[in-house]
Amino acid sequence: MSTFPYGFDAGKLRAARTAAGASVARIAREVGVSERAVSLYLAGSRVPRPELLPRLARAVGVSPADLCTVEQERLVHLRVFAGRSRAEMARALGIAEETGSAHKNGQHFDIGSGGGKRSQPSRNVHEFRQHLGLLEGPSTRTRGR
Rank of each mutant, 00 (worst) to 15 (best):
R49M: 08
H103T: 14
A59D: 02
E127C: 00
E35P: 12
V76M: 07
E97W: 02
L132Q: 09
Y6N: 07
G115N: 11
L53N: 05
G106V: 13
G94R: 08
T142N: 09
G61S: 12
F109G: 00
P138W: 06
G106P: 13
A25V: 14
G112S: 07
L134Y: 05
E136S: 07
V80A: 11
E73P: 10
R91W: 07
A19R: 15
A90I: 01
A10N: 05
E98M: 07
M1D: 10
P50A: 13
R86D: 07
E30L: 15
R91E: 15
T140P: 08
Q107T: 11
P138L: 12
R145A: 13
K104R: 14
P64Q: 03
L134N: 06
V125D: 09
A102H: 03
G83F: 01
S122A: 14
V31Q: 06
P48S: 09
I95P: 05
E51G: 04
E51T: 07
D66P: 04
C68I: 07
A87N: 01
A102E: 03
V76K: 04
S2D: 13
G61N: 08
R58A: 10
P48L: 06
A28T: 13
F81L: 12
R14M: 08
A57Q: 01
S113D: 09
D66A: 14
L40D: 14
F109M: 11
T140A: 15
R14N: 09
E97A: 09
E88A: 11
S101G: 14
R145S: 14
N105P: 01
K12G: 10
A90T: 04
H131Y: 05
T140Q: 15
V24T: 13
G106N: 13
Q120G: 05
H108G: 00
A82T: 00
L134W: 04
A25R: 15
T69P: 01
S2I: 09
K117S: 14
Q107N: 09
